Simulated assay, not measured.
Amino acid sequence: MNVFDGLLGYEKLMLVCGFILFVFALAAITVMIVQRRDFKMAMALIVLAIVLMGFPGIQAVKFSQDTVELDRIRTQPQAPADPAQKQQAEQTLANLEQRAVGNPQLQAQVSDGYRAIGEVDKAYDLAKSVLREKPSAQVQATLVPVLTAKLNQVQAGARIIAPPAAATSAPASGSVPPAVATGASAGTASVASPTPAPVARERERQIAAIASQLQSTAAPLPAASHAALAKAYVVLGQPQRAQANVDAARRIDPNIRISAAVLRAARAGGNP
């Protein structure tokens, strides 16, 4: 970290101007003392310089405290149940988000903070803006839990129906089979949902987009992310890719819990 971390543009200007004014006032006082002249005016400049530097200094300290709180928020095992505690955490995240402009790593951490307090939509909106800038692998790794949480949220209501063992092929990557698109199926992997067809199609479009974002990250995925992708690819009618993610999840964590319906659909579609 440097002295300007977390400061807004006008605060950086105040800090620089205050420092220059402080140096100038010290030089003026030295000259006046040597010349035995009254230096009260120069002392007033010293006070003004301290004020100019003091406000950004206070903000920098508060920013440092907020980043410590951010680390605590991100590592908590579950979202806070107390509304007051959640509101306080959300305010801390909002303050940091305002000061994170131009800092992709901090933006990614704030996004993950929103995820940790249960604000998945806010987390994903911020994650998308970060991903548009094609960030580093480290930043993408920070966003993996956010993308995983959003993928799980979107497909939370999906009910998987395993295809028959006679299935011999999977649709092309990125395609959505008609039965999945309409939500009405007989013998294919689908979402059994009473939602209207346009709503179901929009949900599948979201699942495909988030799965693509998650799968394309430059960082290794944890078991939970592979499990979420396994369900996503079953819903999208791509059982072979679903099975590949099931296998990857179990290699990372043999005890990972994956829906039995997802396992049946992936196995039946991927291994005719």
Rank of each mutant, 00 (worst) to 15 (best):
A189K: 00
T142V: 14
A189R: 00
Y124F: 15
A186I: 12
P145N: 13
I117A: 05
Q98R: 15
V101F: 03
S111M: 10
Q107D: 06
A170K: 00
S136H: 11
A137I: 13
G157W: 01
L96W: 15
P104I: 10
G102L: 01
A100N: 12
L126Q: 06
T142L: 09
E119R: 05
P178C: 02
E90N: 14
I117D: 03
V146L: 15
P178A: 12
A189I: 10
A184H: 06
A179L: 01
A162K: 02
A89T: 07
I161C: 00
A137Q: 11
I161Q: 02
S193Q: 02
S169H: 08
S169W: 09
S129C: 02
Q105R: 10
E90C: 05
L93S: 08
V120M: 01
P171F: 08
Y114H: 09
Q155W: 03
G113E: 05
A179F: 05
A181W: 01
T182W: 03
Q105V: 01
S111N: 09
A158M: 05
K150Q: 15
A94M: 06
A149H: 11
T168G: 14
S129L: 08
S169A: 14
A179M: 02
P163S: 11
K86F: 07
L131T: 06
P194Y: 06
P135S: 10
S185E: 01
E97T: 07
G174F: 01
Q140M: 13
V144G: 03
V146W: 14
N95T: 13
P178W: 06
Q153L: 12
L126F: 02
G102I: 08
S193D: 01
R99N: 12
L131V: 06
P178D: 09
V176S: 05
L147K: 15
T188A: 07
R99A: 13
A141N: 10
R132A: 13
S136L: 06
Q85Y: 12
Q138I: 08
V120D: 04
S129A: 08
S129E: 12
Q85M: 08
R132P: 00
E97A: 09
P104H: 13
A94D: 09
T148H: 05
Q140E: 10
K122R: 10
Y124N: 10
I160A: 00
E97F: 12
